[in-house]
Amino acid sequence: MKLGLVIDLDTCVGCHACAVACKQWNSSGISGPLTDYHPYGDQPGGVWLNRVRHYEEGVYPNSKTVNLPLSCMHCEQPPCVDVCPTGASYKRESDGVVLVDGERCIGCNYCAWACPYGTRELDTASGTMKKCTLCIDRIYDTRLPEAERTPACVLSCPTRARHFGDLDDPDSTVAELVRERRGYPLLPELGCVPVNRYLPLRPSAASRPSLEHEPGRDELSPAQRSSGPATGQEGAAAERGGAPARSPHRQQPAQPPSQWPNRRIYR
């Protein structure tokens, strides 16, 4: 198994719900509490396992704003695990989840240096390194209803931009999404082989009408071409293509609207 997250940048609105859901769940989760420093002070800070960044791509007026949630990628070749001298950081063989055993962690920070994604944070109060647990205490909790055995961030995401599952299983939703939407890893050149994938922005929506020729004018559907009286049942049929058959303006451009030809439409 290769459990991980697939995050859709095309619908992520950057709302931080996933980040706070993560904070909330994990505060009393297996690595909680997630200490907050100076919570009411000038420079509030604290331990978060998931943070959302906001980027801009391109230049006004063609710029795009892209929101990028970042949590542990559960790398297949995790440098954080390699460098950890105590074995506190480890990658589970069964499902690929990268975890920290707080008992063993000596707080050397080496893993945080080694992680290129900045997804590990030291809790100075407990003296241990903390990171996304992939909500290991949810996804295997058989006492939760099936649909909720999913990470808190995924459960919460209002735009359903986050998906969780087994990327090893070609039939899983996540694998399918990655295939279909060409999901990609971040910083691929560093060779950490992240499991988490990001779905790129979709090309502009399919329904954008093609408007090479003058729209709607020489392109009327048969229904729209029908004109004439309509009433009752027929009226409903006429409604289907309710656009007028002709443009009054085009026909008699010089006429004021008070003289535009009327269509017989029954009330």
Partner: peptide
């Protein structure tokens, strides 16, 4: 993974400093 133009970090998503 953004390749369509200059990419700039607009906001890091946290006001205070992190570890």
């Amino acid at each position: 993974g953004l390749t369509q133009g200059v990419v700039r970090l607009h906001d890091s998503g946290h006001s205070g400093p992190t570890f």
